[in-house]
Amino acid sequence: MKIQELSKGLFKENPILVLMLGLCPTLAVSTKAIYGIGMGAAVIFVLTCSNVIISLIKDFIPDKIRIPSYIVVIATFVTIVDYVMKAYTPELHKSLGIFIPLIVVNCIILGRAEAFAAKKNVLDSFFDGIGMGLGFTLALTLIAVIREILGAGTITLKLLGYGWIVEIPHLNPMIVMILPPGAFITIGLILGFSNILKKR
């Protein structure tokens, strides 16, 4: 039961590839693998915490003002992530830029709050948040790795001086894949091919 809540976000209901939620940050930050992982971690934290809190307080919120209340809860956690990242990983915070505060308007988070956390118990909501967040991270990192390999010929997994930058030899990078058009074309092709896989 719990495993199911966790695993459905990874493939069957993957927020990016199947539900097509949260596309703006996906396309904007997927220029390096590490950005994908960083953004994914921020989303996992916000999604899990807001899911848990909302499922805890769902009985006290009057139905009419539930959306504004959810947004306040979400915005609080986003502010926490924003400041923590600014303090401990300033480089990453700078490259992700306004897309960290923009997690507030990411449809995945409000969507899960409304569709799942407002109806289910705390434990289920917790696993749903982690599963959906992991699914988001997985898809985002996949797109980032594809774009970085094709656009720069490297895979960057380096943060605060730790980790590696893998260089792919004998590859002529196409700069356009790092630029905005590359993002649109990559996600278009990925969605198309995942449709083909789904039909099988």
Binding site: M20, A183, F184, I185, I187, G188, L189, L191, G192, N195
Partner: peptide, 9 residues
């Protein structure tokens, strides 16, 4: 959606 994204590209 897929073709729309490719055109957007």
């Amino acid at each position: 959606a897929p073709i729309t994204f490719i055109i957007a590209g």
